[in-house]
Nucleic acid binder design. Structure first.
Lengths: 207, 207, 207, 207
DNA sequence: AATGAATGAGCGTTCATTCAT
DNA sequence: GATGAATGAACGCTCATTCAT
């Protein structure tokens, strides 16, 4: 595919290349400094282009962030459905979801940092995107929980509205801790411990 | 130091008053606009003082944020120990902790917003404070878990390093959702549902 | 008056002084380069203040122009009524108007240049002001013509709507020529020749 | 030169076509936004060529304006002589001049707007052109006046240096008013009322 | 202590011009 | 000839900080 593009149109390829180079550079700078503290000059420098070039690909600074959400992040989240589909029971679906979540964010640390920061700021710019993605995620979790209840492996007396946000929150919190940790460790290794906490809780059932 | 001044003179007392007025004004503005988008002028305006006056009480803009963490937030967190002490078993201690946590953040919404945003940004400025407070919190949780294990009400096979962060993350996530919710609801009412999820998980023990 | 202000309030005086210094500087730069080609830096430099200082007295660059019209130019035009009042017949009133017009514009050459340029550009910014001032002027002329007709010194068969604009145009044209002339001459000396052309025209009445 | 190219080759002919397309586009954009507010991109867009193409026909942005004066406007003004020639007495010559002037500017409104704006700005770029055209025009008027004096239809005691500029100014002023008028009316219909004012003035000769 | 006018570095953005294709 | 992506200087404007009063 990439190769075909090169053959067909050098221009289109270059355009795409530069667009992505700027986007990656921007995410990199945003991750380091935060969106508002990042300057166009820094992004241009990181991307190896002139400041003005940015404006050939993005309407303005805000637009870079919006594009980041619209294309990059949204794509990652959309992939979660796929992971869930691959399992045939609720518990494994939940496990796959969490695993894929941790995996994707571990794979792209900078995206993880930017995403983490933005979801905790009131930025109208991306609020709609964030709410949309959050809804997509919690809808998936809701479906899994309901299925789990049908399968008999999950409690019937759950307040699903809380549970779905609880699970997203716990996973995001795990990512957040990983990002801030000074030790380097495999984020995906948290999958099973997390699932275990979700399912069994911390209480001693024999008590 | 500030306290001493209050004792010594009326002038110092006024000073203390103005200091707090500025701090409250700052938190208010930070909550509305975010730290970097807030201006000294806005804070001064909200506090009813001149721009220059701010610099009599704070070294610079950053310092306002540091003071916010050093005094205001730290104080809130310190109160958590007290709540925990009032219960005499692990489960109630955990319940009291979570309840107090939600209560304090509900009581001071602006602080909650600022705290939420800052803990998810890489600001060297407050990193130490955040780590300190997080440690204080998770230490409390660790103690509770260990006690619960001794009491036999909590599982022995827990990865405490994860659990303590898991609980903090889940509570903070509940706060975060409450802050972003369009509906108004009583945040403390989330206490028992949360504790229930912590202790029993979502799994059906009969399965 | 000036002195009193100094005694009462140095601050107010300084403020007014700086405001006017900037306005004068701006008009000076506008006259030399034209509004759009003038930069804030140039104006600030000419006024002997920092760039940022401009924004303590004017909302933005556009506002400088608007203020110029609202206060400076409007004031000059308002003075025209006064000159007209001092004569007791139509011809002298017209003479006084034209004389005062030429006199004021000669007195403030820079204002004249800026006014001349702006009235021939489509700038929404000052369009209302320009139309307003033009109307004020042509209303005065209309009154004079009508009075002249009553006095019997002016023709009855005049298309006043044209005449009033004709007179303003001819005077402004005289100013414009004076501004562009390489020779220096007394603009007010054009008064009587102009009035003569207005009244008698170029035709030979004996023909 | 350009004309020669047209004769020599089809390619050159295309070139000439594109050259004029760009010039027309430029005038159109200048009329709408003013010279300094117009961008090369806008002109290129209006002309249906690439930005870079402009530089194959014009040295730079300023050059477009210079060419506008050198070819387009100068051509219009040159035509005035022709109109004057068609009358055989001073009064009709003046009438024909004014009529043609109004007619040409009414015919090409965009040119009129650009010409009007530029003649009232201090642009070294076109100053020479403007002075040249103004001289050409006032020379024609001077000739007419002198002839009128010989014919005995015009006063002998005229300050011709003023009269010639007076007439040009009044006509340009009529055009300027027409351009700014919200009502649409036939500009050439102003010819006779203007001539009447020129010849007879506003005064009552019987007074 | 308190003020707020003044500063000027630094930002996001535009656009005339160039040049590889 | 024709293109339009790329450039980077230059602009208007903001705002943390200082300091004379």
């Amino acid at each position: 595919m990439k190769f075909t593009e090169v053959v067909i149109s050098t221009k289109a390829n270059n355009t795409g290349e530069k667009y992505h180079r700027i986007l990656e550079a921007a995410v990199s700078v945003f991750a380091k400094k935060g969106f508002h503290q990042s300057t166009i000059s820094q992004i241009a420098g990181e991307a190896g282009v002139a400041d003005g070039t940015i404006y050939l690909y993005f309407k303005n600074k805000d637009d870079i962030l919006v594009q980041f959400f619209t294309y990059k992040t949204k794509q990652v989240f959309a992939g979660f459905r796929e992971a869930v589909k691959k399992a045939d029971n609720a518990r494994d679906k939940l496990r796959n979801l969490v695993h894929r979540h941790l995996e994707e964010f571990q794979k792209d640390r900078k995206m993880a940092i930017v995403y983490d920061a933005l979801t905790h700021q009131n930025m109208e710019l991306v609020e709609v995107n964030i709410r949309g993605m959050s809804k997509m995620y919690t809808d998936i979790v809701s479906d899994i929980i309901e299925r789990g209840q049908e399968e008999g492996v999950m409690r019937r007396d759950l307040y699903i509205g809380l549970v779905k946000r609880f699970i997203l929150g716990a996973v995001e919190s795990a990512i957040s801790n990983w990002l801030r940790s000074k030790r380097e460790y495999d984020l995906t290794s948290m999958t099973d411990p997390l699932i275990d906490l979700f399912i069994r809780g911390i209480g001693n059932p024999d008590a």
